[in-house]
């Protein structure tokens, strides 16, 4: 098995992916260590969401070359649910509305199916309730909300908070937040960011995908990468995000073209 299993949480090598024959990712290389927060920024259409979808196992995208490894294990051939069992979590840019399935039943099923896959017993009902209560408090989610149909009629902010609530419940090794800040007002943004920060441990890692710097004021990244036309063209520290905020993406485009 390739990869440095001692330190790497996620290792992406020369990743190419296409949808309907059109190549979107054109050779991505990325390494994320436990305890780190990485931000991936870039203009619209640069492939940010595709990268998130491909890591999570969306079968609409075809990986044509390269590998994705989590803790030294290759994910390429795994189904989305198997990647979740391995500890990958994707906070969706557009969470799907599921009528007739309550948030609570959904979470119970997700947690117990994941435990089953890991060879664990189902979580006892009282423990489940306790956990749901704790995590919903962390995200300032009203109890009534939990008995509503998943995402149905939720506001944009409620949907995103619910995504982070699910992340808190699932306790992933690697969380990918795809445009979690879009559609959030400043108060909701703070709640979401606070939730993400509180869930941070030295053992897990987070990838924040965003168009704007705003979210990074609250979730401070260790590394910032700029994605352009399917490739990471520049990487740096958190100051790179501020530079992008100030100067836009054009200078990177010029730099990349040289």
């Amino acid at each position: 098995m390739a990869g440095n299993t001692e330190t790497d949480m996620l290792k992406i090598k020369n990743l190419h992916a296409s949808v309907e024959g059109k190549e979107i990712l054109k050779g991505i290389n990325l390494e994320v260590n436990p305890g780190e927060v990485h931000a991936i920024m870039g203009p619209n259409g640069s492939g940010k969401s595709t990268l998130a979808s491909v890591i999570a196992g969306n079968e609409d995208f075809e990986v044509t070359d390269g590998t994705i490894e989590l803790e030294g294990e290759e994910l390429n051939e795994l189904a989305p649910e198997e990647r979740a069992h391995q500890g990958v979590f994707l906070s969706f840019q557009y969470p799907v509305e599921i009528p007739g399935v309550t948030v609570t039943n959904f979470m119970k099923t997700a947690i117990n199916e994941t435990r089953k896959a890991r060879g664990l017993e189902e979580m006892p009902a009282n423990e489940m309730l306790k956990k749901i209560r704790e995590k919903s408090e962390l995200l300032e989610i009203d109890r009534k909300f939990l008995s509503r149909s998943l995402n149905e009629g939720f506001s944009g902010g409620e949907k995103k908070r619910n995504e982070i609530f699910q992340m808190a419940m699932m306790e992933p090794k690697l969380a990918i937040l795809d445009e979690t800040d879009s559609g959030l007002d400043i108060d909701a943004l703070k709640v979401v960011a606070n939730g993400v920060n509180r869930l941070k441990t030295p053992q897990n890692a987070t990838i924040v995908i965003t168009h704007y710097q705003r979210l990074l004021d609250y979730i401070v990244p260790d590394h910032v990468h700029v994605l352009l036309n399917g490739k990471i063209v520049k990487s740096g520290g958190k100051e790179l995000a501020l530079e992008l905020e100030e100067k836009g993406y054009d200078w990177i485009k010029q730099e990349a073209a040289v």
């Binding site: 999570a56 196992g57 969306n58 079968e59 189904a79 989305p80 649910e81 990647r83 979740a84 069992h85 979590f89 994707l90 969706f92 969470p95 799907v96 599921i98 399935v101 039943n105 959904f106 099923t109 997700a110 947690i111 199916e113 994941t114 896959a117 699910q166 699932m170």
Partner: peptide, 16 residues
């Protein structure tokens, strides 16, 4: 896909 990416296998996700 949404349900599966939360660890719910295809058959169970379909049933849900």
């Amino acid at each position: 896909l949404y349900l599966r990416s939360r660890g719910i296998p295809k058959k169970e996700a379909t049933a849900l």
